[in-house]
Nucleic acid binder design. Structure first.
Lengths: 232, 232
DNA sequence: AAGAAACGAGAGCACCGCTCTTGACGATCT
DNA sequence: AGATCGTCAAGAGCGGTGCTCTCGTTTCTT
């Protein structure tokens, strides 16, 4: 890796990057279905078949964009978390949730690529999975930090988690060490609730009901935080 | 409407129905992007241009499928609600949530069409909106029924809803008359949480973390019910 | 019975993803 | 220095797509 040694390697890396840049711009304009290898090639002054030297198929180009997207979202989430005082767990949680929504609103088509319906026939390669959990790691760290600090007091209103959740909880707990099953379950619920909210807003599911989503969203993530046991 | 008067109207209605049936089957196999007017025509033994006598564009055919999908989901939700004792509000809520998940798992591509990323360039016509809220009406009725019965005791753990939510709450309240803003906000949160969960499960966002989603889902919707103030 | 409307078939346009071949260029080895 | 081998852009071409237009035919309406 590093800086390509030979001139050929350098120009290849540069062209690869230019392809993804143009593709990302097309994606932002027309969405995933509007992404066309021929159009990318046209914009680069190349012929369409030349693109296949760099990406063996359209799906591979999409995969590159997906990985980039997960990393961009993950970085936004990491930055939002890092900008908060580490001891302010509730503030970190809220900041991270708002970072997700802000990033989604700024990059709607990329968000749709990551969290919308999977492109039919497209199977996520393993490479994407590693990038996909980059933001999830941050949520988990906030929860486990709060738990370790002893400030996590989940209200006693949910029924006990079923024993059958234990195996799944153990897997999720790798992201939030030491956290009991009850809290793991609520963290998953808060996590899905966050993305459910953002998806509904972005994909127009609120129709004409919620015209001012920002305050409603803020209230929702505060509810999630309270359910989680964070002080609100 | 009713039975077409003339023979031509009857055969037209029949062919229209056959087109949507074949299209729905294609949709179930390959997803929305794999839906091809030419393939539908081929399967009907027609020539592709003939389809345009019935649907002026591919998007119009998709719109018909979307409306059918919303109605199918709405009907499943209505049936699940109707099968419960009207006074068992918590049971109705849980039944409705499970009905959404069950329908989504049984019709993944149709669900993706309704709640996944909107097809780029596709603007939902007004016809779809009416069908889209068919299930939402049921959620609203359960909440307002519970409120009217006096069994709704929302726990005091969320911060107060911001005043700016008032106008949106008024709009949502048309689906759940008499319900105070605090509960309206939580209902929206539970609603988005429900679909966020189902979407994550269906679109593979749980990766290798949650392998046994059913009990976790049940716990999540019970948490939502508790947050709403339903007795759990 | 005559005119109007609806219909299916066919050809054709501009796209798309993808494959294969060709000829030129550049790095590497003898 | 010259031959070799891998890489590259280009072009033609295949089968597919949504969509449009025209042309006879059929069916309904008046």
């Amino acid at each position: 890796m590093s800086a390509g040694r030979t001139a050929r390697e350098r120009v290849r890396a540069e062209l690869t990057r230019e392809i993804t840049d143009i593709a990302r711009r097309q994606l932002a304009l027309d969405g995933a279905a509007g992404l066309s290898l021929r159009a990318v090639a046209r914009e680069m002054g190349m012929v369409s078949s030349a693109i296949y030297r760099y990406f063996p198929s359209r799906d591979d180009l999409l995969t590159a964009l997906i990985i980039d997207g997960y990393n961009a979202l993950g970085e936004a989430v990491e930055n939002a978390d890092a900008a908060c005082p580490p001891g302010d767990h509730t503030g970190r949680w809220l900041a991270v949730c708002h970072a997700v929504r802000d990033w989604a609103l700024a990059h709607p088509h990329e968000y749709a690529l990551l969290y919308g319906s999977p492109v039919p026939g497209y199977k996520a390669p393993v490479d994407t999975v590693a990038a996909a959990i980059r933001d999830t790691v941050v949520y988990g760290r906030i929860v486990s930090d709060a738990h370790r600090a002893g400030v996590l007091n989940p209200p006693d209103l949910c029924p006990p988690v079923p024993a059958s959740f234990g195996r799944d909880a153990a897997r999720v707990r790798e992201l939030m060490p030491g956290v009991p099953d009850e809290v793991v379950a609520r963290a998953v619920t808060a996590w899905t609730g966050l993305f459910g909210w953002v998806g509904f807003e972005l994909f127009g599911q609120f129709n004409n009901a919620i015209l001012d989503p920002a305050p409603a969203f803020d209230h929702a993530v505060r509810c999630h935080a309270a359910l989680l046991g964070l002080p609100v």
